[in-house]
Each structure stands twice: as C-alpha cells, then as structure tokens.
Amino acid sequence: MKINKNIAISDSGFVFNPVNGESFSVNPIGAEIISLMKTGQAYDEIEQSLMNKYSVEITTFERDYFDFIGLLKQHNLIDTNEEA
C-alpha cells in the first residue's frame, strides 16, 4: 500500500493532492504516518516507530491505523495501481 508519490504534505499538516486539486488537513500523528508512508516504509515499520513514540495499545493502534488508511483510500490518496 503506497501513498501517492506526488502528494505534498507540510509541517502544519496540510495535504495537497495535485492530481485532483483537493486539500486536506491532518493531525500530527496522521501527518507522521503519511510522511513515513511517503518514504516507502511498510506497515510493520510504521507501527514499530509509532509504538516506540506514543503510549498506545497495539490493538488500538491497529484499529485506528486501518481506519485511517480507509479514509486515505476514500480520499484517493492511496495509489491503488501499485497495490494491484
């Protein structure tokens, strides 16, 4: 699962998709996940680094993470071609 390469994300959590001109706002942890995805990290790696940083149960994080990915998909921010 890859985030679209040309997605731009700023430090303040502003996400711009140049393909369709849509803009989004994410909270800091959401921005962190997108940045990590952009560097090509796999889910396991992302999970590891966030689990080290935040106090959260693994089940909670997993549930929230996949909910978040679902939203990214819904907003066409995930590159579905590469996934296939």
Partner: peptide, 11 residues
C-alpha cells in the same frame, strides 16, 4: 498561492 489558502485553512 496555495500556501495562503493553506495558512488560513489550517491556522
């Protein structure tokens, strides 16, 4: 510039 839209939108 989109940065201006970005500023008012997020901050």
């Amino acid at each position: 510039d989109i940065n201006e839209f970005h500023e008012i939108s997020t901050k």
